[in-house]
Nucleic acid binder design. Structure first.
Ligand SMILES: [Zn+2]
Ligand SMILES: [Zn+2]
Ligand SMILES: [Zn+2]
Ligand SMILES: [Zn+2]
Lengths: 128, 128
DNA sequence: AGAATTTATTTTATAATATAACAAATTTGG
DNA sequence: CCAAATTTGTTATATTATAAAATAAATTCT
């Protein structure tokens, strides 16, 4: 059996939204295999690629995990703060960073297509 | 036979410096195995962990590769611009970004320990 | 110095992450 | 409809990273 990409995407997004921590592709896969045992990794990776391209989810590059976008910052810079203790992720809009990032790129006539900003540390709850 | 960590570290840094593109851990391993066939992945990963902790090398989190630090910005924010076409990496010091990044963290009383800033795009040479 | 203990490094094996290549179903344009 | 193009599913494999066991060096103690 086969599902449309759009359906897959909202299914995966649902799974992401049902968890309050970032999920790896394989964690998502395991979750979805409960109801759909035949499912395999490439389906998940393809769906995640679509979701991140659309800005509906983000990949945390530094921990190889994914979160749903909760920010609606299509045109801007997502800033993802990751608690190293509890793995909670806080999402901010980094529009304010753009001028400075652009200035850095211009130093060497680099043409940016995507900015990655992640902050590791401790969330309020975990900071003693 | 066995080598001191410090020696391993400068060996690995030498390999990184001899290439003008970022290298994966396994690319470094292959290179070093030429002269030292017994070498295995954990040695490389341990050495890279030490080098990145010391700020003598950086991991490009978005492409799982490493470059030697050419910036001497121990206390600041490394900004790594990666050309998606030729993989050249330009390193900048992002000290100017710190106030804004700090402001974002403070919004939710997040205590940052490490900032990750990467820019994907095209370098001057590859931008037509 | 020489044995006992600790620590650091290497090796082996395996886990986790990601993609290539192929097969099957669906859609599109005639 | 039918053929061609596209999208989705499946199988197999490549890449990245780490756990656990084995070994070697260094340290401590007698
Ligand atoms: Zn977002
Ligand atoms: Zn936390
Ligand atoms: Zn640097
Ligand atoms: Zn380039």
């Amino acid at each position: 059996m086969r599902k449309q990409a759009a359906t897959r995407q909202s299914d995966v997004l649902d799974v992401l939204n049902q968890h309050d921590k970032p999920m790896t592709a394989y964690a998502i896969l395991d979750q979805m295999k409960v109801g759909e045992p035949g499912l395999a990794a490439p389906t998940i990776y393809r769906t995640l690629a679509a979701l991140t391209e659309q800005g509906r989810a983000h990949k945390l590059e530094s921990i190889n995990a994914f979160v749903p976008c909760r920010c609606a910052h299509e045109t801007s810079v997502p800033v993802l703060a990751i608690c190293e203790e509890c793995l909670a992720v806080e999402e901010h809009d980094g529009a304010q960073l753009l001028p400075q990032l652009t200035a850095l790129s211009q130093k060497s006539a680099f043409e940016p297509t995507r900015h990655i900003v992640e902050i590791h540390g401790r969330c309020q709850t975990c900071a003693t």
